[in-house]
Amino acid sequence: MAIIEANKIYKSFGDVKALQDIDLDVQPTEIFGLIGPDGSGKTTLFRILTTLLIPDSGSAKVCGYDVVKDYKEIRKRVGYMAGRFSLYHDLTVQENLRFYATVFGTRVVDNYDLIEDIYSHIEPFKNRKAGQLSGGMKQKLALSCALIHRPELLVLDEPTTGVDAVSRKEFWDMLQKIRLQGISVIVSTPYMDEAQKCDRVGLMLNSKILSIAKPDQISDQINIPLYSVRSKSNNFLLLKSLRKQPWCKSAWLFGQDIHLGVNDNITESELEKELNTLGGIKSYIKINYGIEDTFMELMGGKTSESSLIVK
């Protein structure tokens, strides 16, 4: 049985379509990543799955229960970490943890083994008010509170946004351990590189899920040849001149390189000639699509905020 099963979910707020035609399944002990920018609908979907919002149409089951009719059963079984830090700032670390345990009718000692790994990092600060913790410590406390009733499913809304690269890596290591305890995880993130840490990912944009697949298979549907090109001097100037070429389908900055998509009717030797003519190129190599390349290609090469295109 799937731990999450959603069918044709729609949700609007006035004129704004927040979710359209969402189909989704998450399997037991899977780590499922929902990847997309702000405003793509990730939070709305999570609120429906955690029974905090009712869909306009469509249906969803979580842990085998209907998100509308059986909301009380779902709430016992799900741990939810909201995007904004939503613990009590004026309670201490320990008081927050005890509060969440009590609300769910359990005790900290009963499930301490589950959170020990995470909580031990903040235990030295147990008498500090939650509002005075650093970002990384708040994140660990919020995760501890979401886990303290031993949920079947953990729903994490952008747990790593604004968090530095080291804390992000630690956080994903923690999720791997949690999964070994038999807990399923659905997690959203705007960081494309985190997709690799998930068993499967859904790419979300403008209220729709564009594609769902294993991270290394998500680009299988795309056939445009992709090259990584590096300039001898200034990548930005090279980027501008590449975009003027008729055989260029897309060109974007990628770290120290430019990722260049070309028309499939140009052969590799023709491309070599073209690039030599253009000049200023230090190196180029054919590459596979990464998650971010795929996402940008699925976006049709346009920003999701379409009316603001820099000339």
Partner: peptide, 21 residues
């Protein structure tokens, strides 16, 4: 640049490069 799609993020950097030029 937090929180935006990968194309919007790159367009932002193109503005930065433009200013640097």
């Amino acid at each position: 640049t937090g929180g935006v799609d990968p194309i919007t993020r790159r367009q932002f950097w193109e503005l930065i490069y433009e200013s640097a030029l």
